[in-house]
Design a binder for these strands. Structure first.
Lengths: 193, 193
DNA sequence: GGTGCCATGTAACGCGTTACATGATTAT
DNA sequence: ATAATCATGTAACGCGTTACATGGCACC
């Protein structure tokens, strides 16, 4: 959902071809370690945007080197882009995979909840350590994007760790909560028994 | 990536059919407002798991009502599940859509950065308000899962708001950062001009 | 007889990924 | 010559979504 709009935005700045779009995108987000967009995604996105009428093929340059298909944004594309600018972006979905794992471990009896929490905490600490290290080595004058993204990641990691502590404190409540295991009620009298 | 493992875990507890899996999943995560898994995903996931040899069709019950295809986990499935339990779950990727939007707004000149920040902040505040409201109305004895997930969401929202403030403080740095707009260097002498 | 739940799917699409393939130019 | 970079794609898959379709049974 985001690469689509980024492509529109870059084409709003000026018409470009696929390879150039990819380079510009990577430059904007501060390198491929922050957000690596694969060429295939750029080209398929361009195709879809063209089919939807949001961009149009402007021209094909063949003055030197390989051919370049140059795309430009359309009016419909600008409209879509402005809508993107006008509305807020919802923070990533509430789907929490760790919580799911914890619950699955509980009901299946195949994993020890305390162990799961320990493992996750160790993982997050390691992650936090790595990011803090990267953060301290980043150059504020050239890698501003990277630094900001690292700061965000660190803040979220700290939140996750605090949350893990909360969960650990409530583990007993979670364990003894009435898990509605629905008795899969097949209605009707059994047939042919 | 998570539903797959959840299905394995639920089948590790006992063999089940698709409809039952969906109900059990929804019960675990505390209702569809937390994580709504569509029937289609359950069935396609089951098909893929079966093709991969992680689950197998156990039997088809037809004692009463509609037929039920009952699946059971295999040894390979248990192995995969234990691997899931053994390793940590990485916090959602660093892809930040708002930061991307800000940068796109800057280079395209199609949006005012301050405005973008204001919009996003307003959106996050609204979200925070809604979640806090929900949190205060939740019943701790029955909706523990929902409460924990709400707490996590609130903590992350607060982190996002603090991060927004950071970005606002650095806006000038971001604006005046050397944006490497690569002069798209077509090599070779122009042909046929 | 209608509504609604139980239970099963298929089809098509969007987004993202990996892997593969082609070909031209430039620098060594 | 060959390796790197420029530039374009296709094919197939995984995950998730919406929409559509079918049919039995229960309850009123």
């Amino acid at each position: 959902m985001s690469v689509r709009h980024a492509v529109l935005g870059l084409l709003a700045q000026r018409p470009r071809h696929g390879y150039e779009l990819r380079a510009a995108f990577q430059a904007l987000v501060g390198g491929e370690e922050n957000w690596d967009v694969k060429p295939a995604q750029i080209y398929t996105t361009l195709t879809r945007l063209e089919q939807g009428g949001f961009v149009a093929e402007d021209s094909v340059e063949q003055d030197a080197g390989p051919e370049k298909r140059i795309y430009a944004i359309t009016l419909a594309g600008r409209k879509t882009l402005n809508e993107w600018f006008a509305c807020g972006i919802e923070p990533e979905h509430q789907h929490d995979e760790f919580f799911l794992k914890l619950m699955i471990g509980l009901v299946s009896g195949a994993a020890d909840p305390c162990r799961l929490i320990q493992t996750q905490r160790a993982y997050l600490f390691q992650e936090l350590h790595d990011l803090t290290e990267q953060r301290s080595q980043a150059d504020p004058s050239r890698e501003l994007a990277k630094i900001l993204l690292l700061d965000k990641a660190v803040m979220h990691l700290e939140a996750d760790l605090r949350w893990l502590d909360m969960i650990e404190g409530r583990l007993d409540d979670i364990k003894h909560q009435p898990l509605p295991e629905p008795e899969s009620k097949p209605r009707g009298r059994p047939r042919k028994i």
